[in-house]
Design a protein around this nucleic acid. Sequence first.
DNA 1: TTATATACAAACAAGAATGTATGTATATAT
DNA 2: ATATATACATACATTCTTGTTTGTATATAA
Lengths: 206, 206
Amino acid sequence: MVRKTKEDAELTRKRIINSARAVFLARGVSRSTLEHIAAHAEVTRGAVYWHFKNKTDIFHAIRDQVFLPLIDRMDDSLTLASNEDPLTQIENSLCVTFDDLNNNIEMRQTYEIMMIKCEYVDEFSLVLQQILSNCSSITGKIQLAYERAEAQNLLACKHTPLALALDTHLFFGGLLHMWVKDADGSMFRNQAKELIKSHINLRRKQ
Amino acid sequence: MVRKTKEDAELTRKRIINSARAVFLARGVSRSTLEHIAAHAEVTRGAVYWHFKNKTDIFHAIRDQVFLPLIDRMDDSLTLASNEDPLTQIENSLCVTFDDLNNNIEMRQTYEIMMIKCEYVDEFSLVLQQILSNCSSITGKIQLAYERAEAQNLLACKHTPLALALDTHLFFGGLLHMWVKDADGSMFRNQAKELIKSHINLRRKQ
DNA sequence: TTATATACAAACAAGAATGTATGTATATAT
DNA sequence: ATATATACATACATTCTTGTTTGTATATAA
C-alpha cells in the first residue's frame, strides 16, 4: 500500500467521518460496525483504527463537527446586540436553527442520529449531560431576552420571563424532535417557521 | 428441571419482561443480550426463547404493556364529556400523563427506554411511525378542545385552534423529553404541572 | 393411568465484531 | 541519500451473541 501525503490522509479521515454519519443514519450507531464504515469509505478497518480510537471516537468527531458550532450560532443570535426587539430576536434565534437544519445536510443527519439513532448509555450518557447543560444555558439566554421584552412592555401576558422561557424552550425542543421524526415533512418540517412565529406572537402585546 | 404450572409459566414470562425492562434501561436495547435478561430473571436463555421469539419481541411486549394504555387514557380525558371548561380539560389531560409517569415506575422506565435507550432503525422504525400517528391523533383532539374553547370565548388570543394545538403538542412533547432526560428532576420533573398550568393560562382570557 | 405437550435447562455450532499485531510502501525529515 | 515515521492493508486471536438442538421432569388431558 502507498503512503499518502498529509492532505491525502486528512481526506481519508473526512471520508471516514462522512461514511460513519451515513452508516449511523442507516443502521443506527449500535448496529454499525467499523467494517461497515470502512467499506463505505472504501478503506479497510486498518485506516479507521489509524485515525480513530474506536466507534465512540468517531461518534464524537461527527458530533463536534456540527453540533458545537450550532450551539454557538444560536447563542450569538440571542446574546449579540441587535436593532430588533427582544421578541423578534428570540424568534430569529429559533429560526436560525431550522435554517441550518434545512440547508446543512450533515447537520440534519447528525441531529437525526443524536435523537433517534443512538442509545444514551455508558460513554454516551455524557453526551446527554452536555445537551442538558446546553439546554439550560439557552433557556437562560431566552429568559434574559424575555426580561428585556418585559422591560420594554412588549409582553401581552403577566407571566414571568422564566416561565415564558421554559415554555419556549420546551416548544423548541418538541419542534426539533418532531422536525426530525416527521419523515415526509408534512406535519411539522414544512411549517416550522410559521409555528415559531405563531408561538412568539402568542406572547406579543396586541 | 421441573415442569411449571400455567400460572408459574406466566409468572416467569412477566419476570422476563420486567427484567428486560431493567436491563434495557441500564444497558440500552442494543447492548442488552438475552443472556443479560435471562440472568436478571434468574432463568436461562432457554426460558426466554420459550416465551419470546427474540429481543424485538420482548421489546414490543414491554411497549404494549404500558404504552398503549397511556394513549387510551389521554385520549379519554380529552374526548369524554366533562363538566370542566375545554382549557382545563386540556390541562388535565396533559397532567394525567405526568401523574402516570410519577406513579408508575414501569411506565417511566418504558418511556425512558423508548426515548433515549433505543435506536429507531429497521424493525424499530415501525414503532416511530406509530408514535407519529398517535401524535397527530392527539393533536387533533387538542384542536377540537381549543375549538370548543373558542366557541365559549375563553381564548385570550386570535390564533387558530390548529395553531394553538400544534404549539401545545410541541410543548408537551418537549416536556416529555425533558422530563425523561432531566436526571435529578431539578430542571423540569418537579415543576411539570406548573409548566403545564402556565402554558394553558397563557391562552386563557384575562 | 398413561401418553403427550409443556416449560424450561444445557449443550452446541456458527458467525460477527473487536482489538491488536504485523507487514509494507512511501512521504518526509535530516 | 538514507533513516524513520506515516498511512494504511492484511492477518490473527479472542470474545460475544445468537439461534437451534437436545434432554428432561412434570402438569395435564384422555
